[in-house]
Amino acid sequence: QRITLKDYAMRFGQTKTAKDLGVYQSAINKAIHAGRKIFLTINADGSVYAEEVKDGEVKPFPS
């Protein structure tokens, strides 16, 4: 399943989102408010992988 960072954070909370991605909650808040195009893939085992689309390139998040 693929979902935006904002939607994932709204569904699970910023604290869990940060923990799942290995970053601080403040980084999640800042990324959402900056309007960054970050998409999360939720794997069947429950693990989460995030990618950011920037300038036409897709890069892992966090980099």
Rank of each mutant, 00 (worst) to 15 (best):
F12N: 07
Q25E: 15
T41E: 08
R36N: 06
N29Y: 12
D7Y: 05
I3A: 06
R36T: 06
E51A: 05
K37P: 12
A18Q: 03
L21P: 00
Q14R: 10
G35D: 14
N29R: 13
E52G: 01
D45Y: 04
K59S: 11
K16Y: 02
D20E: 07
Q1A: 11
R11I: 15
K16L: 03
G35M: 10
A50Q: 01
E57P: 03
R2Q: 11
I32V: 07
D7G: 04
E57M: 13
A27T: 14
D20P: 01
V48G: 01
A44H: 09
K54W: 12
K59T: 13
V48Y: 04
V53L: 13
V48K: 03
E52T: 03
D7V: 05
N29V: 14
P62Q: 04
Y8A: 03
I38V: 09
Y49C: 11
L40E: 00
A44Y: 09
K16A: 08
P62V: 04
R2T: 11
D55K: 08
V23L: 09
Q14G: 09
R36A: 07
A34C: 11
K19E: 10
G22K: 08
N29P: 07
Y49P: 00
D55C: 10
K54T: 13
A34D: 15
T17Q: 01
F39D: 03
K37F: 09
T15D: 15
S63P: 11
K19R: 13
T41Q: 08
R2Y: 10
K59G: 10
D55W: 10
I32C: 03
T15P: 11
K6C: 09
I38T: 00
K16N: 05
K19D: 08
E52L: 03
K37S: 13
A27Q: 14
E52K: 01
K30A: 14
K16D: 03
I32Y: 02
V58T: 13
L40M: 09
Y49N: 09
Y49S: 12
A44R: 04
R11Q: 15
I32M: 07
L21G: 01
K54S: 14
I42S: 04
T15I: 13
A18D: 01
L5C: 02
K6G: 09
T15K: 13
K19S: 11
K6L: 13
F39I: 08
T15R: 12
K16Q: 10
A50C: 04
E57S: 12
T15H: 14
S63K: 11
T4R: 06
G46L: 08
A9K: 06
K16V: 05
A31K: 01
P60D: 05
A31Q: 02
E52Y: 04
I38E: 00
V58L: 10
K19N: 12
D20N: 05
K30D: 15
D45C: 05
L21A: 02
A27E: 15
Q14M: 15
S47Y: 06
S47I: 08
Y24R: 15
Q1C: 14
V48W: 03
N29T: 14
E52H: 03
A9S: 08
Q25A: 13
V53Q: 09
Q14N: 12
K19M: 12
I32E: 01
R11M: 15
Y24S: 15
R11E: 13
E57W: 10
Y49D: 07
L5A: 01
K54C: 14
T4A: 14
L21H: 01
Q25L: 10
